[in-house]
């Protein structure tokens, strides 16, 4: 399964008889990476599951028109990121919560989430990350946890590499301050 490159998967998908099989391979290859990417943005497992499903449905619908010269995995990450941000926006509108209150709500969710079993220091780090503005949080997660290259991140977030580096620098500073204050 892992021997298939993105290009091979796309070639396989363009064959109408094999497209279901190819899509299944794409899901298997990227589901975990996308899941953890979304989970770190929205925190709750159930929300992550919904967003991941929507992401792959969009991928299924859009894969026909996908240009083969683009990178599949940055495209997948872009869809997942946009879906997550849309979800957060909907939640804030739905409950009429200001941004700060919503970040607090996510911190509380983290504490009582049955699928979070980190120790004290891990919990503190996650809470510090949740204090960051949304875009900065995504940049920090992609760089710190997934060790993604700035070039790829630039394609996903449609932001310049310089801006992303600055964003990561500010994020680390804020997390450091959070640790010092606490």
């Amino acid at each position: 399964m892992s021997e298939y490159s993105d290009k091979e998967l796309l070639d396989l998908f363009s064959d109408k008889e094999k497209r279901n099989y190819a899509f299944n391979l794409i899901v298997r290859k990227y589901q975990e990476k996308l899941y953890w990417h979304i989970r770190k943005i929205v925190v709750k497992h159930d929300d992550t599951d919904d967003i991941l499903q929507n992401t792959f449905i969009k991928v299924w619908k859009g894969l026909d028109g996908f240009r083969k010269d683009s990178k599949l995995y940055t495209w997948l990450y872009r869809i997942a990121t946009n879906e997550s941000l849309t979800f957060l926006k909907q939640q804030k509108t739905k409950y009429l919560l200001p941004i700060v209150d919503y970040e607090n709500h996510l911190s509380e969710t983290l504490e009582c989430d049955e699928y979070f079993n980190g120790d004290e220091i891990q919990c503190k780090l996650q809470k510090a990350i949740l204090e960051l503005p949304e875009k900065q949080r995504i940049v920090f997660n992609l760089k710190y946890f997934e060790e993604m290259k700035y070039d790829d991140m630039s394609e996903i977030l449609e932001t310049s590499v310089g801006a992303l580096k600055a964003s990561y620098h500010h994020a680390v500073k804020k997390i450091e301050n959070y640790f010092k204050e606490d």
Binding site: N20, F23, N24, V27, R28, Q31, E32, Y35, W36, R39, K40, H45, D49, L52, Q53, F56, I57, Y115, F116, N117, G118, D119, Q122, C123, Q126
Partner: peptide, 17 residues
């Protein structure tokens, strides 16, 4: 530190199909 329900990733491709 995060975890998922048992067999989540094994079942997900079938659910999405």
């Amino acid at each position: 530190p995060f975890s998922v329900p048992k067999d989540y990733f094994e079942e997900f491709p079938t659910r999405i199909q």
